[in-house]
């Protein structure tokens, strides 16, 4: 979503993005003229009249599980976005019985919070696990 019109979205897709991604952008490119939606999400930069690089993860119940907002010159890390979604999906599927420690990704251990784990995290989880 940006403040550009759908017509400009089409031009950008057809003339540039489709040359980077075969078949063009696979998802909907949303238009937010005037930044009305961006204002509500807190990402509309009034002075510049554009929207910051805001990224919101919304779960199947419509609840915001996480967000990240960057100023325009620095791009995002898509791998981290996917990792977060996988983590939130894992936690959701466990119905709240599991939590994913720092640096978790599929295949790494999760933690099962409860009285027995208090003060014992150091026994099952090492700081080296926070890194790839």
């Amino acid at each position: 979503m940006s403040v550009d019109s759908v017509f400009v979205h089409k031009m950008w897709n057809d003339h540039e993005l489709s040359k980077m991604v075969k078949g063009g952008v696979p998802f909907a490119m949303l238009s937010d003229g005037g930044g009305k939606v961006g204002s509500i999400y807190g990402v509309y930069l009034e002075d510049a009249g554009v929207e910051a690089r805001g990224r919101f993860l919304i779960d199947p119940d419509g609840v915001i599980q996480g967000y990240e907002v960057l100023t325009p010159p620095v791009g995002r890390n898509i791998s981290e976005t996917f990792r977060q979604i996988q983590a939130f999906q894992h936690v959701r599927n466990s119905q709240g019985t599991e939590a994913t420690p720092s640096g978790w990704k599929p295949g790494k251990i999760t933690l099962k919070p409860g009285p027995d784990l208090v003060g014992k995290v150091w026994e099952v989880w090492k700081t080296s696990m926070a890194f790839d």
Partner: peptide
């Protein structure tokens, strides 16, 4: 309309920006 699915909502400064 997307209730029941995971959604990534992305804002960006503008079409034809560089990053």
């Amino acid at each position: 309309e997307y209730l029941g699915k995971w959604v990534i909502l992305c804002f960006y400064p503008g079409d034809f920006t560089f990053v």
